[in-house]
């Protein structure tokens, strides 16, 4: 409605009414200024900074540069990355780690929420749930410290293995254990927190559906699989789409803590490579290009999955 009115006005009138609104809201605009500037500087300027991937940028060069001063080099950095011996290893490691993590971290909160929903005692339910998301609030550093400790050669796990007659294993020093450790940490840290959204969805299911099903003789299992699960399916699909849109991203912060020279072959992902190339070695344009590649790949994945899901089920992000 409003739009139609605006469009029929002559252009000069539209500008004049915009200026009038600007004047009317001047106090509000002043209030907004600090946060707007913050977002502009710390979110938008780095987006512009992606142009560094296409420039022969050296530290000390101006951030903003136009024309010849920018020393444009086109897509050379991207080609270098695609041709690099690291390319296939990084893409494989990143995708494999993320897909495996998704496979395990995705269903656990759903199963946990369904399980909690079956508990009649409200108090017991609350206590279990309170415990379940404690790890979410504890920092990555602390969680990794505890893990390194528990898994160390004289840690509690190896003590138990030795007590049972087995041989002590140096878990952190072996590449094969990197993925299981990373996945377990993620499941442990996030399952309780991620279950909150499913529990909220379950709480929103109409209760008379259950009483009707009980009258028809449906048991608990049937009630869960024919009422609860279908009711929270839109939530599940939404979260799945969002998760697929991060398959090329890396939890660099966590991986850097667990990575070591022994597990480098499997722990080196795009995020840690960007950190190493850029922050450690100072190859800024190249590292920017690698990071941008991951961001674009994520966006394409997100768009594609959303498109496919929407064609099939009518559910989707947009």
């Amino acid at each position: 409605m409003e739009q139609v009115v605006v469009q029929t006005k002559p252009k000069a009138g539209r500008i004049r009414s915009f200026l009038r609104e600007l004047k009317r809201d001047r106090q509000l605009l002043v209030l907004m200024l600090p946060a707007v500037l913050h977002v502009l500087i710390f979110c938008y300027i780095p987006i512009y900074g992606i142009t560094i991937a296409f420039r022969n940028y050296r530290i000390g060069d101006p951030y903003f540069a136009l024309g010849a001063a920018a020393r444009w080099i086109g897509v050379q950095n991207f080609l270098d990355f695609f041709k690099s011996i690291y390319f296939s290893r990084l893409v494989t490691n990143t995708l494999l780690l993320n897909v495996l993590t998704l496979v395990f971290t995705f269903w656990v909160p759903i199963a946990f929420a369904l399980l909690l929903n079956e508990i009649a005692s409200k108090r017991y339910k609350r206590v279990v749930q309170s415990f379940s998301y404690l790890p979410y609030f504890v920092s990555a550093v602390i969680i990794v410290s505890i893990t390194l400790n528990i898994l160390s050669p004289d840690g509690v796990i190896n003590n138990a293995i030795q007590a049972l007659g087995g041989r002590s294993t140096y878990f952190i020093g072996k590449a094969v254990y990197f993925r299981p450790i990373y996945i377990l940490l993620n499941v442990w840290k996030t399952f309780g927190w991620n279950a909150i959204i499913y529990l909220a969805a379950i709480a929103g299911v109409q209760q008379d559906l259950y009483s009707a099903a009980r009258v028809d003789g449906a048991n608990r299992w049937q009630q869960m699989s024919y009422i609860t699960l279908p009711s929270i399916m839109p939530t599940i699909i939404l979260l799945l789409i969002l998760n697929v849109g991060t398959l090329f991203a890396s939890n660099t912060e966590l991986i850097l803590l667990i990575a070591n020279p022994n597990n480098m072959d499997v722990s080196d992902v795009i995020g840690t490579y960007v950190y190493r190339m850029g922050v450690v070695e100072g190859r800024f344009p190249y590292a920017t290009a690698v990071g941008f590649f991951a961001a674009v790949a994520n966006f394409i994945l997100l768009w594609t999955v959303n498109y496919v899901v929407r064609k099939k089920t009518d559910e989707g992000l947009w």
Binding site: F18, E21, L22, R24, D25, L28, L29, M32, V36, V39, I41, F42, C43, Y44, I45, P46, I47, Y48, G49, I50, I52, Y57, I59, Y63, T252, G271, V274, Y275, G278, V279, F284, A287, T288, G291, F292, A294, A295, F299
Partner: peptide, 27 residues
Amino acid sequence: LVARRFFTVFLIVPMYFTGGLIPSFIL
């Protein structure tokens, strides 16, 4: 609010797209 659609988009874009680690680091 004046230009509220502009401000909404202004805030949503960075939620989906960020400059990434290195551009922020150089900034």
